[in-house]
Design a binder for these strands. Sequence first.
DNA 1: ATTCGCATTGAACAAGTGTTTAGCGTATGA
DNA 2: TCATACGCTAAACACTTGTTCAATGCGAAT
Lengths: 225, 225
Amino acid sequence: MRSTADDLTTRARIRDAAIGLFGREGFSRATVRAVASLAGVSPGLVIHHFGSKAGLREACDQHVLAQTATQGREKADPGSTGRLIQDYLNNPDQYTEEIAYIRRSLGDESDAGDAFFDAVVKQCQDIIHTGIEAGTIRKFDDIRSVAVVIASNSLAVLMLGRHLSRSLGVPAPEPNGIAPDLLRQLTLPLLEIYTHGFYSDPRFLNAAREALEENNANNGREHAP
Amino acid sequence: MRSTADDLTTRARIRDAAIGLFGREGFSRATVRAVASLAGVSPGLVIHHFGSKAGLREACDQHVLAQTATQGREKADPGSTGRLIQDYLNNPDQYTEEIAYIRRSLGDESDAGDAFFDAVVKQCQDIIHTGIEAGTIRKFDDIRSVAVVIASNSLAVLMLGRHLSRSLGVPAPEPNGIAPDLLRQLTLPLLEIYTHGFYSDPRFLNAAREALEENNANNGREHAP
DNA sequence: ATTCGCATTGAACAAGTGTTTAGCGTATGA
DNA sequence: TCATACGCTAAACACTTGTTCAATGCGAAT
């Protein structure tokens, strides 16, 4: 997908170097000088091409996230998610930089991160709608909230990949990277929960329902002195 | 729990100011000068008390995380989780700074963040064991992995709280804060999934099982040229 | 009362930061 | 052929960063 060699514009080379470094170090720790040296150019040239460090970041945001989000929205047919994951499992190295960058964008508050998260939620929502029609997904009252929960659970792997790897003893090729083996090990437990549930009976669900209703009632009273 | 006024040691006041700022801005963006001014002291005094910025961070780590992790491990009887959440719902403002700090620690790579994550996993594991014995939680083959998944899903709320609030339109009192209303809105969807599942039949689970076995077989071959 | 120790400050330092500027070379179009 | 524009660099600038240091004040111990 990405041209590996230096057949790129200098501008593009700088941008790619920045994407890598921003993902690895975070926006504030990554310096213009480091980006420049990584791209094999002078610091001045970075500014010349992007106006400022913030401008460079915007260019990176647009290149990684806008693209990824659009991509995800286009292939929003539910079957493609499996294909997408399969694609990642087959050649994960190609996506590591993008993934690291997205992780940083979701953590930092940035418009690009917001857009990406919203795109994921929208995709989940579409999948749920289609799944309910097809009868493969249970009917939910509040589809929107369920979509957000599913998105949150899914992106957790991205945000906490480092800890998941560490905790399960799955070696990660690089810090914060998500090894294919990690995904493989997490798939079945997650799908078991998603299929048969985690609790064995509706006790907790009912208890929570009651507690929430009671809490709502209390809330009404709390606002009076 | 925390003394609100200035009846604290100067050292403690600096540390608390740092915890707040580190949580809000992140470790690298928060400057020694900003911490000092927030605590109403000179920058030199910060260094005098903690040796260096890294030393200050270590002190904060120890105060917030080590404490929290230990606390969690001690009250590891499964019922206490509900009480802990209830406690948070009743007075959330008291914990916002700690939560922000923990979020930063989990995102940044730090020993303190590692310890916290491990503590959460361990607590999940204990809960699952106890729950299985009591018959409230389904029997799982790979309890360890399930614990990691549950921990990951739970901490996702912490890591992505900002996006969850935004996406659901629940106003958050401060950026990256987790409003009680948000938790309330997420509880039922999550518990529904955890109780009745997300998929309506084991189709996806079985498909994944087959795909993984096939993939494993392929993996064996892939290592040969 | 004097000395000691410690909390505390203000100013300074050295390194690193993003950014500016002047100038170099080279290709392109007139 | 010349001029123009542009990619690009080296050096410098202004500022922020973490940290140091000498000096001050103050409370407690002798």
